[in-house]
Structures are given as C-alpha cells and as structure tokens.
C-alpha cells in the first residue's frame, strides 16, 4: 500500500505547487489547503502503515502489541487543527483584500510596494483584474 500513498502524496504536492504559482489568490488558498493535506499524508506515511488495529493497550497488558502507530495520528490531529485555523484566517484576509483592492490578481496588488518608474494606468489595471475575477 505504501507506494500508492507515496504516489498520492507526490501528486498532491505537484497539484499544490501548480496552484500556489497561480496569480489568482483563490487558487493560492486552494493550493495551501492541498499542500497542508499532502503534509498530513506524509506524516501518516512516516509512521508506517503496518497495522489497522486501533492503538489500544488491552486490559492487563502494559505495552501496545500489534496496534497502529498512535503518534502520527496525534501529530496529524494537531496539524489539521492548525492548518484549518490558518486557512480560515487566510481566506478571510484574501476576501477582505479582494473587497478593498478590487482584484484577485497578485500582480495587480502593488499597494505596499508601488512601482516607482512606470505607473500602470488605473483602467488597464482594473481591466486585468476583471479578467482574473473567478466565474460566478
């Protein structure tokens, strides 16, 4: 099973990289989500996928025998909560930026670092921004 999961991990990272390189911030959020999930899969894989038995120590025993590795599950749980909250924040930030700046195109976002020499005419910038609008 592990090669299949490893392949799935590779595909997810590739998809995430493709989405993250987009100029559309909506795709960037999706890329961050996919990358986060790919990472969780890599943690799961790192813990080996030998057993499907829940990691419960039987009554009377003192050590875990034959159960799945519990540590990756704890790590993934932590990572999911963190990535969930971060992506939620990112989505809100991107949406308010979209509303205030009127664009989802990262190339048109030059408020913090304005171009010194050549100023892009405002209407052209907005036209470019409209083109990048996600379909309703």
């Amino acid at each position: 099973m592990e090669p299949v999961f490893a392949l799935a991990f590779g595909v997810m990272v590739a998809v995430a990289a493709y989405l993250l390189m987009s100029r559309n911030v909506l795709r960037v959020v999706l890329g961050l989500l996919v990358l986060g999930n790919a990472t969780n899969l890599s943690i799961f894989l790192a813990g080996r996928m030998g057993s499907r038995t829940p990691p419960l120590v039987a009554a009377g025993e003192t050590a875990l025998v034959g159960g799945a590795n519990p540590l990756p599950q704890a790590l993934i749980l932590t990572a999911i909560v963190i990535s969930f909250s971060l992506v939620a924040f990112t989505t809100v930030l991107f949406e308010s930026a979209h509303r205030r700046l009127g664009t989802v195109d990262t190339d048109a976002m030059r408020e913090a670092e304005p171009e010194a020499a050549k100023k892009v005419p405002n209407d052209r910038r907005q036209a470019a921004a409209r083109k990048m609008e996600p379909a309703e």
Binding site: L20, L93, F94, A97, L101, A112
Partner: peptide, 9 residues
C-alpha cells in the same frame, strides 16, 4: 492587506 497576502502566503 496587500502586504498581508504576501506575508501570509
């Protein structure tokens, strides 16, 4: 907001 997008991403 503009700076935040780059920083956060």
């Amino acid at each position: 907001l503009d700076a935040g997008i780059k920083y956060v991403t």
